[in-house]
């Protein structure tokens, strides 16, 4: 669905690249997470993929369209949910979506149905200028579905939302993905990436450092540890043992045989920890 080869982009065309030699592919029906801290090149890459930034160097195809000679028809197939809540503040939620729907050449979804889907039922006739940031963000998310896109670009879709709403948004993404929609998810939230993505790409300082599935990354980079809580001489003790090192294995066996175990569980590395380990950078 997306093919990116040798992508470079310099805002001032001065050889200082916001993204450099970026290569990746996103298959049909896949959820691909593009992860990195602020200023890493996530938005620049998404800007090029969605035609908002001109392609300077490299080969990019999106939904079968060559981005070099972008065709307006491509936008009938793609949907973009922006991080910025870019809606018309002087128009109501319904007016915003209705106006947007008329710009497409394909069958579009009912604005009221989408408004209800993102939990804004009853707010359809209120001007979005009166909406909270989270409500606007949900409307932008709803708008990105108006044309039933097969290629869906989501930029920080759960930012600023309370946990319940964020969970609902994640469910919508999962549902759309089950229906065959390809998702390009840009985020610095590793938890949502871990939960939703089939594969993730780590980008730092304009370069992709690694691409793999969260599961593989955890297997490859996560340390295999067991955390045990037990009682010894009347007090509670807590230890961590490697499941690979023989010395740790023996110590763990001894505790299991001789002590009263209170809790015991394996400890996996989080995506965030792996990101830091791989890139040497924090996500913020």
């Amino acid at each position: 669905m997306i093919k990116v080869k040798g992508l470079y982009h310099s805002y001032l065309k001065d050889g200082k690249y916001a993204v450099k030699d970026v290569n990746f592919e996103v298959g049909e029906g896949e959820i691909f997470g593009f992860l990195g801290p602020s200023g890493a090149g996530k938005s620049t890459t998404q800007g090029i993929l969605t035609g908002l930034l001109q392609l300077q160097k490299g080969d990019v195809t999106v939904a079968g369209y060559d981005i070099k000679n972008i065709s307006r028809k491509m936008f009938n197939k793609i949907g973009v949910s922006f991080e910025q809540s870019n809606v018309y503040n002087k128009m109501t939620a319904k007016e915003n979506l209705s106006f947007y729907a008329r710009l497409f050449d394909v069958e579009t979804r009912d604005p009221l149905e989408l408004i209800e889907l993102v939990g804004l039922k009853g707010k359809e006739n209120i001007k979005t200028g009166e909406f909270s940031k989270g409500m606007k963000h949900r409307l932008v998310f709803a708008r990105s579905m108006i044309n039933n896109p097969t290629m869906w670009f989501l930029d920080e879709p759960t930012t600023g939302l309370d946990p319940a709403i964020a969970a609902a948004i994640k469910d919508i993404i999962k549902d759309r993905n089950k229906m065959g929609v390809t998702v390009f998810l840009t985020t610095h939230n590793m938890y949502i990436a871990d939960e939703l993505c089939d594969r993730v790409g780590f980008i730092v300082e304009g370069e992709i450092k690694l691409i793999d599935s969260p599961k593989n990354l955890k297997l490859q980079y996560g340390e295999k540890l067991v955390e045990v809580e037990y009682t010894q001489n009347g007090s509670v003790k807590k230890d961590c043992f490697s499941t690979i090192l023989q010395k740790d294995k023996d110590a763990l066996n001894k505790i299991i045989n001789e002590k009263e175990i209170l809790t015991m569980h394996t400890k996996e590395a989080t995506l965030e920890e792996i990101f830091i380990k791989v890139t040497g950078r924090e996500l913020v």
Binding site: I78, F82, N86, L103, R143
Partner: peptide, 14 residues
Amino acid sequence: KEGVIEAYAVTPSS
């Protein structure tokens, strides 16, 4: 300021 030009730019309308 509202960023709506970008939203318009990702539609089939020129």
